[in-house]
Amino acid sequence: MIPYRDTIPLRYTPWITWGLILVNFLVFAYSEWLPLEAHNYFNYLHGLVPARYTFPEWAGKAGFPAGDYTPFVTSIFMHGSWLHIVTNMWMLWIFGDNVEDRMGGVRFLAFYLLCGLVAGGLHVYFNPQSLVPTLGASGALAGVMGAYFFLFPYARIVIWVFFLPLFVRVPAIAFLGVWVIIQFYKITTPAATGDHIADVAWWGHLGGFSAGMLLYRLFLLPERNEPEDSPFTRWDRRAE
């Protein structure tokens, strides 16, 4: 099943959400344009490699610049494949605009980056020996989803049942709750150990989501904070 859209109307143009999507696609296009060797070097230099920070002697011998923490930010804008970036940006398109609606552009950008930093830090903590460069906006996006979980719990997420002309509507609290359960399940499998088969930063996802839940209130604009019985927070009856 693939999320198609949500049912929360926008009040303001989500310039930052659109800008983040554009920047992510531009960075991905640039990396894909590079020759293979340069492409791999680009990913290792600007992606988040946990061992780079937990084993500084190895990092120095491997040629990583000392004291360079920019990958905690740059990795948020990098992706490993077309499927990876399209999936992430589609989710940001669905959830980001409404959260930006409540925070305003500048606060939303700061919130997005902070959640990404927390996600990256948690990934490094739980995968200290990993030599795999972590790429993707998933941690920052998870923070946006964490904020959405509390801001619009009864919005409806329209889901397309894959391979069938069937669309169903489910409460956001249920959709995102299932997503969290999947992340918890994944951290109990070998995919979370940081070894050679690890391809998804599950701990980073949970870290970003937790940061979003805990910090979102600090970024809300008071003048955009609707009362609890507003159509932006209550169950969207029109979607039934």
Results as ranks from 00 to 15, higher is better:
residue 182 I to A: 14
residue 50 P to Q: 03
residue 62 A to H: 07
residue 193 T to A: 08
residue 46 H to D: 03
residue 89 M to R: 05
residue 86 V to M: 05
residue 100 E to I: 04
residue 78 M to D: 00
residue 71 P to A: 14
residue 186 K to V: 15
residue 214 L to G: 06
residue 201 A to S: 14
residue 91 M to F: 01
residue 63 G to D: 14
residue 40 N to Y: 07
residue 200 V to F: 08
residue 64 F to R: 03
residue 93 W to C: 02
residue 193 T to L: 11
residue 20 L to Q: 07
residue 157 I to H: 06
residue 207 G to A: 12
residue 216 Y to V: 12
residue 9 P to S: 07
residue 154 Y to L: 15
residue 196 H to F: 07
residue 196 H to V: 03
residue 90 W to R: 03
residue 223 E to G: 03
residue 121 G to D: 09
residue 143 G to D: 10
residue 46 H to A: 06
residue 30 Y to A: 13
residue 224 R to T: 12
residue 161 V to I: 13
residue 184 F to T: 05
residue 198 A to S: 15
residue 54 T to K: 06
residue 104 G to T: 14
residue 171 P to R: 13
residue 107 R to Q: 01
residue 200 V to S: 04
residue 216 Y to P: 09
residue 57 E to F: 01
residue 203 W to R: 08
residue 11 R to N: 08
residue 136 G to N: 06
residue 137 A to Q: 03
residue 179 W to C: 09
residue 73 V to E: 04
residue 237 R to V: 07
residue 6 D to M: 01
residue 205 H to L: 12
residue 3 P to W: 10
residue 78 M to K: 02
residue 177 G to H: 06
residue 194 G to E: 05
residue 45 L to D: 12
residue 140 A to Y: 04
residue 191 A to D: 05
residue 188 T to L: 13
residue 111 F to S: 02
residue 170 V to S: 04
residue 154 Y to S: 15
residue 237 R to I: 09
residue 38 A to H: 13
residue 220 L to W: 06
residue 158 V to E: 11
residue 115 C to Y: 05
residue 165 P to C: 05
residue 163 F to N: 07
residue 227 P to R: 15
residue 124 V to D: 10
residue 55 F to I: 03
residue 42 F to R: 10
residue 233 T to K: 04
